[in-house]
Amino acid sequence: MNSIDIRLGIISALPEEQAGLIEHMQHAQSIPRGMRDFITGKLWGVSSVCVVSRIGKVAAAATATTLIERFNVTHIVFTGVAGGADGDVRVGDIVVANGLLQHDMDASPLFPRFEVPLTGLSWFAADLSLTTQLKHAAQQFLLQDFMQEINDADRAEFKLKTPRLHCGLIASGDEFIDCDIKLSSLKQHLPALLAVEMEGAAVAQVCHEFGVPFAVVRTISDDANGDAAINFTRFIEQVARCYARNILRRFCASLAR
């Protein structure tokens, strides 16, 4: 993959999730469009457009479409936080999606549950090449940067001992999952589910329909249970933004080679 041919779109749902990226963008220029600020420039040698989508599937889909149609991005990466949906996935772990679906999509009996009508698909596969590079960047962050980037106090507060990397299914829906009963119900239907959030599958569908390669990386901020909202903002500001900055730094470096 030649970085000369790449224009990378980077989406996050919240400003705090992207703050560490914008600080490192060279020749940054803000272009307003559709009630969003699209920040263009270079990130670690890669032509990039960073944008905060806001929360939810419609907001994420509109943002991804604008990146493709107005800013001519060739690849899209979504970075942010998610709730863990598996016993092996803990706060501070990283989940890179190999596929995404909308857990609140249900047009049955006209179509099977989770299937997006008239596409024949429920699961949208992430681009293999981008996902592989993103996984490598995340693993290198955990091995080489984590202890230096996340201080002792934050590691203790959020019980971050030895974070791990996972790759698998992420599900999106217009609902903040913070209840064990809701999560258990999802796991019954989707045993392979690793994380839940509110945007990724919408971006995946847009990218599928436009033929744009995409990848999604999520830092686990909570266990999608009754304690999910506790210290959520502090986790994003103190931990997740550091994850995003360092993973994308390594990811962009791999694209720029």
Score class of each variant (00 low, 15 high):
119 T>V: 00
183 L>Y: 14
176 F>R: 02
16 E>M: 12
195 A>V: 02
208 H>E: 14
129 S>G: 10
124 F>K: 10
77 V>K: 07
246 N>R: 09
32 P>H: 03
213 P>H: 15
47 S>M: 06
225 N>H: 14
84 G>Y: 06
212 V>M: 09
17 E>T: 02
144 Q>F: 01
155 R>Q: 13
91 V>E: 01
18 Q>C: 03
128 L>F: 14
26 Q>T: 00
51 V>C: 12
158 F>Q: 04
173 G>S: 04
243 Y>K: 07
233 T>K: 13
34 G>A: 06
248 L>Q: 10
65 T>Y: 03
63 T>I: 03
10 I>T: 07
216 V>T: 09
110 L>Y: 14
4 I>W: 08
50 C>N: 12
153 A>R: 06
204 A>E: 04
170 I>Q: 05
233 T>Q: 10
206 V>W: 10
210 F>C: 10
151 N>M: 03
226 G>T: 02
74 T>E: 11
30 S>Q: 07
10 I>F: 12
71 F>A: 10
189 H>T: 03
103 H>W: 13
168 G>M: 03
141 F>K: 01
54 R>I: 00
170 I>T: 02
56 G>A: 01
142 L>S: 03
132 T>P: 00
157 E>G: 01
104 D>F: 05
70 R>G: 00
136 H>R: 15
196 V>L: 08
231 N>K: 12
239 V>G: 05
17 E>I: 01
72 N>F: 15
188 Q>V: 07
176 F>L: 05
166 H>K: 11
238 Q>W: 04
151 N>I: 01
230 I>K: 10
194 L>P: 09
52 V>K: 10
131 T>H: 05
233 T>A: 11
121 L>Q: 14
135 K>D: 02
167 C>P: 01
101 L>T: 06
185 S>K: 14
186 L>A: 04
100 L>E: 09
202 A>I: 07
5 D>S: 15
20 G>A: 10
163 P>L: 11
118 L>A: 08
118 L>H: 04
64 A>R: 10
15 P>R: 13
10 I>P: 03
228 A>H: 05
182 K>R: 11
212 V>G: 07
99 G>W: 13
245 R>H: 03
98 N>E: 13
88 D>V: 08
7 R>Y: 00
243 Y>G: 04
142 L>H: 06
33 R>H: 10
116 V>G: 00
199 E>K: 11
245 R>T: 12
226 G>I: 04
23 E>P: 00
81 V>K: 06
187 K>S: 11
64 A>E: 07
41 G>Q: 03
253 A>R: 13
240 A>Q: 12
183 L>Q: 09
71 F>D: 09
9 G>C: 13
62 A>K: 07
206 V>A: 11
141 F>Y: 14
224 A>K: 05
133 Q>W: 12
235 F>G: 06
151 N>L: 02
183 L>T: 04
114 F>D: 02
253 A>L: 12
51 V>A: 10
247 I>E: 11
236 I>L: 15
96 V>D: 09
162 T>Y: 00
171 A>F: 03
72 N>C: 10
213 P>W: 15
257 R>Y: 05
62 A>W: 04
189 H>L: 13
201 A>M: 04
97 A>F: 09
244 A>T: 14
122 S>T: 02
28 A>T: 00
191 P>Y: 09
147 M>C: 01
